[in-house]
Design a protein around this nucleic acid. Structure first.
Lengths: 244, 244
DNA sequence: CGTAGTTTGTGCGTTGGCGTACATACGGCG
DNA sequence: CGCCGTATGTACGCCAACGCACAAACTACG
């Protein structure tokens, strides 16, 4: 098999001008991301940043009493480790692999240097950060106002958008941890969705059967996040990056 | 009265190296921020950015059905309008004056240019954005897991940290909008806190009487946000900015 | 093929916050 | 002073989600 994978499978890397891309290419390292792997822990220095290709990473916040909540989710549209170029060095959150796959990783110092050049890469990363902020804000709102069912739908759709298939590997317990709700709550809602024929659930494997009807049940939060994420790679944004 | 106000009352501006500060000074305009004023609406172009001195601005998200939730709060430690240099042009949230006062405002284009220079100002603004991200993440977690009482305490303390006095002007209805809860819920909790002698409530005026005991009731979220906010202006961070 | 471990399903009672409706207080203004 | 608008207090039923306890189904492995 030759080149079944390429950094271009990550949309951020793909959006870079050739010169910038070529400069980074030799430093990009193709690494597997196993399910449950923690890319960084709360409060620790981050040595690498990751550009997922066909994998999903959750930014998860774990509280003192063990309760947790997902803050945002990163797939092939993004990057894990923004704190590195934002200058904070550390984050309060953990980054956990939610769906196994691969990513291109990059030495943190190298990225920081590239970022400091200030050109297209910087603009692209900042715009991505802006999209991430939108997602986090929307998560906060969704946590406050929407039902578990709506949130599960949102979570499923956001995950699906970041995967090539319509299937994902994830136990109900893990989903509950992400959403910060009870496992039983997820069981109940998932059962309802399965009854309605929207999904198929089987011991850690979820298959989405009827995406349109799933989108009909989700709250507005999903659309907002998706729109912002898409906007990042729209023609206009791409031009702005190349011009800079 | 001469110079009872100065841009240095905003901690971000104050943290800038002299050369950068002097370059910005002639463009800074001292403006009053009236209670309830909206500095920008969701989805609109932002002409100015604001550096509050003795005022508080809430980043508020309003949903289609009118329900709302505060995403983060900005005082003299920050800036309103980060989307401008992050490149998204617009935000999904509104910025509403929560506590009247003043701010220094700056032409958006001017700030963008200064930001593009890439020096200390850029680093400072990015670090601030990082602190803001922490606050938003913590808001999401708090919304999921903590009680109205804990959230009200957090909100009071965060607001107080951004004001010179121990008193703030704010009706229970407005607080409820911020927290995204019922007005009655706020009434109940505020009543409890008043009974306990922690606060004094009187027709839109809250006076905090016993801050230590308020801190004893608050959830961990407050400390996390405060620590991150303080870290922004720590000696070490200041040195990093000046070196750059 | 049987057993141990994991995953999912179900059934309680409990409760925090919601929606609604209305009652009181305060405060400014004619 | 009396009135009206705004702010706050109280009460009641309701329901989503919680915590807990346990049953059932599947899977892997010895």
């Amino acid at each position: 098999m030759i080149a079944l994978h390429s950094p271009k499978q990550n949309r951020l890397l793909d959006a870079l001008p050739v010169t910038d891309y070529d400069r980074m290419l030799p430093h990009l390292e193709w690494v597997p991301l196993e399910l449950g792997l923690s890319l960084y822990e709360s409060g620790t220095q981050q040595e690498f940043v990751y550009f997922p290709t066909a994998s999903i990473v959750s930014l998860l916040y774990v509280m003192q009493d063990g309760a947790s909540a997902e803050i945002a989710v990163v797939g092939n549209e993004g990057m894990v480790g923004i704190a590195l170029f934002m200058g904070g060095e550390t984050t309060q959150s953990r980054a956990v692999v939610q769906s196994a796959g691969h990513a291109y990783r990059l030495e943190g110092d190298f990225l920081k240097n590239e970022f400091e050049r200030g050109g297209p890469l910087q603009h692209l990363l900042l715009r991505y950060t802006q999209a991430l902020i939108t997602q986090m804000a929307q998560t906060a709102v969704c946590n406050r106002h929407h039902s578990v069912e709506q949130q599960l739908c949102r979570w499923l759709l956001l995950s699906l958008d970041r995967l090539p298939a319509n299937e994902l590997t994830m136990t109900q317990q893990l989903i509950a941890n992400m959403l910060g709700v009870r496992r039983e709550g997820v069981t109940e809602v998932a059962g309802r969705l399965q009854m309605a024929g929207l999904i198929l659930y089987n011991r850690g494997k979820i298959t989405v059967l009827d995406r349109p009807r799933l989108e009909a049940r989700v709250c507005e939060c999903y659309a907002v996040v998706k729109r912002e994420s898409d906007r990042l790679f729209s023609r206009k944004a791409a031009i702005a990056v190349h011009d800079s």
